[in-house]
Design a protein around this nucleic acid. Structure first.
Length: 479
RNA sequence: CGGGGCGUGGCGCAGUCCGGCUAGCGCGCUUGCUUUGGGAGCAAGAGGUCGUAGGUUCGAAUCCUAUCGCCCCGACCA
């Protein structure tokens, strides 16, 4: 329950975020360092996210399965880059049943290895391909610096793992999924994201190509919101995932993996939230509209509740996720603030005056105060609320897109780049060398986020070294 | 891992330097009455091995030793 004012975003963005997560009732700190409890309200939001994605995965031919949490340590040593990437953050089980284990077991930080092992068992012929499996679950990475939803030791996600007979099909899969992520982010979460390819240094451990969607948070830092990887034959060779093709030749598979996590919730918070609290996109909000009845006397209560109950039933019947706040131990003013903290898109106030006039007060969460409040007739309220939800969804995307666009700049020279990334994203030509990337990071703490797919046709020169460059990249400080 | 800070009712803190009666305060919680259109008021209550263990002392939240944990700041990560 919300009881006090939030630290404002301008005072301390990080503190604003920490307080908001707790006060909006999304999650709480668990007794184990770096672990979180996702509370029912936060989990319902996650369920709405998973439902939308799961539908798209299935529509594109994927099926769900479950692989074990524990993975033999030796599996990680089979792919060199993979083990080097993940070794520092593995949690390892050394004992079972009171006995020291012969081989330590890793609590999965991601499942490429065990799934690769299983795929090797399952794939014999080109007829077995492609394999398109997704898993919903949690993974563990021993993080040193944690933050609820953005970086916790254990987090929830989906990981898709596919095996194909040729590189074209595998790459197509990688791009198909990235599109699903981007469309989800834009259309469901109202997050304007950029799609692109990661640089060599930012690539996933063991991948040949990593693509990502990147969003800009209100502090102008970038947040990688989902990734889709093409592995080539790296994991197929490490785990001997082989098939006999139509010409009776033994071939290695081409594999991919892709994931989207509860970090998405962090992106929603930091993109849409304001100083009153959480602001949820209507399509994902656990509660889309809340009714706050207002009355003084028992006689008023009877009249108000009759109308409020009728409205509740009507809106529910029209498919709106609606909540009646009939608590009698807190004031109406408290309820207004409370639901604003939780980010409910629409509030419907019903008081004695509304009963007389046949109206209600509608307040939209994306425009706090008087500006977002209007008085509408009770008749036809279901369609009024439905269209308001659509308006809010669109307004959130528009606002976030304008914010992002007004904070991406093209630097004239290297000094200009330094200035830009101190408070925004820089978009510029880059020669794609590790050296220039490292120099920017050292000078500014900004990293390359991704190289967007949409590129100008003409070439340019690297913003760091001046060498001829084919593509532009986003530089930004990132979470 | 390096640097800084903190452990006292559910939460936020005071008290610790300089040991002393029954460990306080705010918020929240319970009950009752009055309230309710932007974070209500009054009254009466419940709730604490002072992180843990050991030591010094007539007496320890306070002094000593050890230990555990958490938060913040610096190198990797969805």
């Amino acid at each position: 329950m919300a009881e006090e004012k939030l630290t404002t975003r301008s005072e301390n963005f990080s503190e604003w975020y920490n307080q908001l997560v707790l006060k909006a009732d999304l999650a709480d700190y668990a007794p184990v360092r770096g672990c979180m409890v996702v509370k029912p309200y936060g989990w319902t939001l996650w369920e709405n996210i998973t439902a939308a994605l799961d539908k798209e995965f299935k529509a594109t031919g994927h099926v769900n399965a479950a692989f074990p949490t524990l993975i033999p340590m030796s599996f990680f040593e089979k792919e060199k880059a993979h083990v080097e990437g993940f070794a520092p953050e593995l949690a390892v089980v050394t004992h079972g049943g009171g006995e020291l284990l012969e081989e330590p077991l890793v609590v999965r930080p991601t499942s490429e290895t065990i799934i690769g092992y299983m795929y090797a068992k399952w794939v014999k012929s080109w007829r077995d391909l492609p394999i398109l499996i997704n898993q919903w679950g949690s993974v563990m990475r021993w993080e040193l610096r944690t933050k609820l939803f953005l970086r916790t030791a254990e987090f929830y996600w989906q990981e898709g793992h596919t095996a194909h007979s040729n590189p074209e099909e595998a790459k197509e899969e990688m791009f198909r999924i990235l599109d699903i992520y981007a469309n989800f982010a834009i259309n469901e979460a109202a997050l304007p994201v950029v799609k692109g390819t990661k640089s060599d240094t930012e690539r996933f451990a063991g991948a040949q190509i990593t693509t990502s969607i990147e969003g800009m948070m209100q502090d102008k830092k970038a947040l990688q919101s989902a990734t889709s990887h093409y592995f080539g034959q790296n994991f197929a060779k490490a785990f001997e995932i082989q098939f006999v093709d139509q010409n009776n030749t033994l071939q290695f598979c081409e594999t991919t993996s892709w994931g989207l996590s509860t970090r998405m919730i962090g992106a929603i918070i930091m993109t849409h939230g304001d100083d009153q609290g959480l602001v949820l996109p209507p399509r994902l909000a656990p509660i889309q509209a809340v009714i706050v009845p207002i009355f003084k006397t028992a006689e008023e209560k009877a009249r108000v509740m009759e109308v409020a109950d009728r409205i509740f039933k009507e809106l529910k019947a029209s498919g709106i996720r609606i909540k009646m706040d009939d608590r009698d131990n807190v004031s109406s003013g408290f309820k207004f603030n409370d639901w604003e903290m939780r980010g409910v898109p629409v509030r419907i106030e019903v008081g004695p005056k509304d009963v007389e006039k046949g109206s209600v007060a509608l307040a939209r969460r994306d425009k706090p105060g008087r500006e977002g409040k209007s008085f509408v007739p009770q008749s036809g309220l279901d369609s009024a609320v439905s269209s308001l939800l659509v308006d809010i969804q669109a307004a959130l995307l528009k606002r976030a897109t304008e914010f992002r666009d007004s904070n991406i700049h093209e630097p004239k020279d290297y000094d200009d780049l330094k200035t830009i990334v101190s408070d925004g994203w820089a978009f510029s030509y880059w020669c794609e060398s590790k050296e220039c990337e490292a120099k920017v990071k050292e000078d500014t703490k900004a990293t390359t986020r991704n190289i967007p797919f949409d590129q100008p046709t003409e070439t340019g020169s690297c913003i760091v070294c001046g060498k001829p460059s084919r593509r532009k990249v986003y530089f930004a400080k990132a979470y």
